[in-house]
């Protein structure tokens, strides 16, 4: 095992001649410490080009078992150079040398990634639909599936806006568990007449949502409150209702699955934003119960859930006088049943 490691390291350094003279020192580091701590020391005597730095860190991420080694190294270094992806750097800049400060920064950020910190936290931002949002631990990092959830809501609300329902004072959307604010801010960004209320029970999330709203200039149409659907139900109804749409990406993982998560998720993200109790339905149930009291007639509830949930929710809506009708299950881009849409009937 060690031989393989050393050989691949050696192969790599032969491509990267300026570092060759530091090889011995590096080898020493590797053999004395465990693999996880195998951080290459910051070369002080020589400088690396962008390309060399990317390759070096890709190799190290590979050796230490960090997931997505190549992309991680590319995204981090691109971020330090002020661009989103390395592709947007011209070929000339790829062979430019990094400054000492950039080298230090690279080493600092990549070391964080070595500890399995998600890239989004390392570079402190990520893209969601058209927006670039600030990301900070432990606030939940929005997943690509949620981009589709926003698409579903947008499709309906755009129709409403078109038919003139928007002229009502209440063209409002409520989001439960806003995290970084991704859903609400995307909706506000696409629908200039919409107002939104975002709730989260975590102060970090509330702060981050406000920060993101400010930097996108959307703060005027957004209210953010520190509230918990489990305990503050009555207050939420009093303060927010009625709304035209209710949207949520609630914690929906089953508690038993929490142990099998990748370290990126498990070590860094807020468990309260992931763990939905033994059946993953704890928060979902509260939202379902609360929805009829919050929504206008024909107002819709949009949920992102685990693939085992849509059938359960459909049964739940059928089984009682909930005031909610199950409209449909939508599938995500991988073909999994991922989104539930329910509508408040026009009855009492």
């Amino acid at each position: 095992m060690w031989m393989i490691l050393r050989r691949s390291l050696y192969d790599f350094y032969t491509h990267c001649t300026p570092l060759k003279d530091r090889l011995i020192l590096h080898k020493g580091l590797c053999t004395s410490a465990g693999v996880a701590e195998c951080t290459p020391s910051l070369p002080t005597a020589c400088r690396l080009t962008v390309q060399q730095a990317v390759r070096l860190w890709t190799k190290h991420f590979q050796l230490t078992g960090v997931s997505e080694p190549r992309l991680s190294s590319q995204y981090i270094i691109a971020h330090l150079l002020g661009v989103k992806t390395l592709e947007s750097l011209g070929p000339d800049r790829l062979v430019e040398f990094l400054t000492h400060k950039q080298m230090e920064q690279t080493w600092k950020l990549c070391s964080r990634r070595l500890n399995r910190m998600p890239v989004q936290y390392v570079i402190e931002e990520w893209d969601f639909r058209d927006l670039t949002l600030k990301m900070r631990p432990p606030v939940f990092i929005p997943r690509p599936e949620t981009e589709e959830l926003v698409g579903l809501v947008l499709k309906d609300l755009q129709v409403k806006q078109g038919t003139g329902v928007s002229t009502e004072a209440n063209f409002t959307c409520l989001e439960v568990g806003c995290g970084s604010g991704a859903i609400s801010l995307s909706l506000l960004n696409s629908l200039p007449q919409l107002r939104a209320i975002a709730l989260d029970k975590n102060q970090d999330a509330v702060d981050l949502t406000i920060e993101n709203a400010n930097s996108l200039g959307l703060q005027d149409r957004l209210e953010v409150h520190l509230m918990d659907v489990l305990t503050d139900a009555d207050m939420i109804v009093r303060m927010c209702s009625p709304v035209s749409a209710l949207v949520s990406n609630p914690p929906y993982l089953f508690s038993e699955d929490m142990t099998s998560l990748e370290p990126e998720v498990c070590k860094f993200e807020d468990h309260a934003a992931l763990d939905g109790g033994s059946d993953g339905m704890q928060v979902i149930k509260h939202i379902l119960n609360l929805a009829p009291r919050l929504l206008l007639n024909q107002g819709r509830l949009y949920l992102e859930v685990d693939q085992r949930h849509p059938l359960v929710i459909q049964q739940w809506a059928k089984g009682r006088e909930s005031g909610l009708q199950y409209v449909q299950t939508c599938h995500d881009f991988t073909g999994r049943p991922r989104f539930c849409i329910l509508e408040k009937g026009s009855g009492p």
């Binding site: 997505e68 998600p118 989004q120 997943r143 690509p144 914690p251 992931l274 693939q307 999994r336």
Partner: peptide, 19 residues
């Protein structure tokens, strides 16, 4: 449509940067 997220459970379970 093929993505990196096709294997495993997807959704909140996994955090990927391979888009």
């Amino acid at each position: 449509i093929e993505t990196k997220r096709a294997s495993g459970a997807g959704g909140q379970h996994v955090n990927t940067t391979d888009s």
